[in-house]
Amino acid sequence: MTLPLASVQLYTLADELSADPAGSLERLAAMGLRTVEAFDFVRRPQELRAALDAAGLVSPTAHAPLLSDELWTPDGAIPTPAPEVVLEAAATLGARTVIDPFVAPERWATAEGVDDISERLNTLVERAAAFDLQVGYHNHAQEFVASFDGQTAYERFVARTDPRVQLELDLYWAVVGGQDPVALAASLGDRLLAVHVKDGIAPAENPFRPGAERFGSDALDQRRPGEGEVALAEALRAASAVQYAVIEYDNPPGDVFADIAASLAFLRDGGLAR
Score class of each variant (00 low, 15 high):
33 L>G: 11
60 P>F: 05
78 I>Q: 10
191 R>I: 09
59 S>R: 04
60 P>D: 11
213 E>W: 00
49 R>E: 10
249 Y>K: 06
165 V>N: 07
42 V>W: 01
64 A>V: 12
154 Y>K: 01
218 D>P: 00
212 A>E: 13
257 F>N: 07
107 R>Y: 06
243 Q>G: 09
76 G>M: 08
147 S>G: 05
168 E>Q: 13
131 F>P: 08
259 D>S: 02
5 L>Q: 15
270 G>R: 12
127 R>F: 04
243 Q>C: 06
38 A>F: 09
80 T>D: 02
262 A>K: 04
99 I>Y: 03
44 R>D: 15
121 L>A: 08
35 T>F: 00
42 V>G: 05
257 F>G: 08
139 N>C: 00
206 N>T: 01
58 V>T: 14
14 A>C: 08
47 E>F: 09
45 P>T: 11
104 A>K: 06
42 V>P: 07
214 R>A: 14
43 R>P: 10
37 E>Q: 15
142 Q>N: 14
22 A>Y: 02
266 F>S: 13
265 A>C: 02
30 A>S: 14
241 A>Y: 00
156 R>T: 06
111 A>F: 01
74 P>F: 04
91 A>V: 03
194 A>S: 15
252 P>M: 04
56 G>D: 07
144 F>R: 01
6 A>C: 05
125 V>C: 08
6 A>S: 12
38 A>E: 09
82 A>Y: 04
77 A>C: 03
14 A>N: 14
37 E>M: 03
42 V>C: 05
107 R>M: 09
30 A>Q: 14
49 R>Q: 13
78 I>C: 01
54 A>S: 15
28 L>S: 00
227 E>N: 09
114 V>C: 04
